[in-house]
Design a protein around this nucleic acid. Structure first.
Lengths: 202, 202
DNA sequence: CAGGAACCTTGAACATCGTTCAAGAAAAAC
DNA sequence: GTTTTTCTTGAACGATGTTCAAGGTTCCTG
């Protein structure tokens, strides 16, 4: 590979890492191209040689966040007792913990909105769909009679419900819930949802 | 009241209504002071005589949205069969419908973030806390042994879970869920949560 | 190795924001 | 009617994302 492209690639990686750090420290609204350029040592305009626009930059940083989240959920899936129910509880709490520890980066995943006419690139959509993967398998064990499609719906519902509790729980706008309390509430509700789903189907 | 103040008050109301319309049509990011000024017939700078900054404007529009939402939930609470369980389902679905019909205004409630050093005014916090009111009473009927505090926690958990399903369900970033399907999923999960919570406590 | 073509980088410039403010207009007070 | 206070205006300011022509750098070719 040519020397120029090498340098460009290194700069590109630097840029994305710098963007990630900046979002983590100052939130999505604190991401400024001029600051990024200064941080990686190039001109303001040069950012647009590395990346089409800030949207792409945010999506690339988001992709890294999603990958880290995926690892955390994967670890939660395969650690501890294998009971599907408790596995789902572990995954939910792992999601909560990840959001708390990576608050701004996690928020950026959902706060960011593209202009209506721009389309999400495929690699970004793929990243997001991976998340349901972890919760699909334990659910399949709990509901062996359900079709793949039904399980997908249940998985999305369950994930969304937990996401909502984390999102509103970590919001400081209202009364912020202490993290241990939130974890406990999540565990209670996940167990209740599973119990209820099992009871209703039989 | 003096004529000047009258005119000012009328302009203030116009401004907030115009902001509400603009958010509904173009989203929170499409709210521009210059457009608002043109719409209500005053200079750009005059907006700041009516309102401290756009943050306040967004909060005032949000307050109106919350009040309309409150009415919708209230109607759902007192209509139909009085079974607490089905009342909670009706409220959840009413929340979903309201979000779908007022998508951008509803999103603005949660997308908006103030700078860290500014504080939410009391009237805005009050508006938000009212929402839990509707779901508190049916829950109290279902769980007569729980303390006021425990019921508050359960209410927030339940509300948050439904909110998460609506939020991710209406998101277009991933696969958008058809509204009828979403309503059904919500009904299923709310019933399951309640069943599960009742089963676990006894 | 030389010279030209392709490409890259730069920083100034542009358009668009929210917000401020001095000056002029209008209203209120006396 | 004059003075004082208050309000309104629109130009100006500072940020910000993005573009672009000018100048450098790198790379290919003979």
């Amino acid at each position: 590979m040519s020397k120029a492209l090498e340098r460009r690639e290194k700069l590109r990686v630097d840029l994305i890492l710098a963007a990630e750090r900046m979002i983590a420290k100052r939130g999505l609204a604190g991401l400024k191209t001029r600051d990024l350029a200064r941080e990686i040592g190039c001109a303001n305009g040069a950012v647009y040689n590395l990346v089409a626009d800030v949207d792409e930059l945010i999506l690339r940083a988001g992709s890294r966040t999603l990958r880290r989240l995926d690892e955390v959920l994967s670890a939660a899936e395969h650690a501890g007792e294998p009971s599907p129910q408790e596995t789902l509880v572990r995954i939910a709490i792992a999601y909560c913990d990840f959001a708390a520890e990576n608050l701004e980066l996690w928020r950026a995943l959902f706060e960011h909105r593209m202009e209506a006419d721009k389309v999400l690139p495929d690699w970004s959509i793929d990243d997001q769909l991976q998340l349901f993967r972890h919760i699909y398998q334990p659910l399949a064990a709990l509901f062996p009679k359900r079709s793949r499609e039904e399980l997908g719906i249940t998985a999305r519902s369950l994930f969304s419900a937990v996401h909502g509790m984390v999102a509103l729980g970590l919001e400081q706008k209202l009364v912020a819930v202490p993290l241990p309390a939130l974890r406990k509430e999540i565990a209670v509700l996940v167990r209740a949802m599973i119990d209820g789903l099992i009871a209703r189907q039989s």
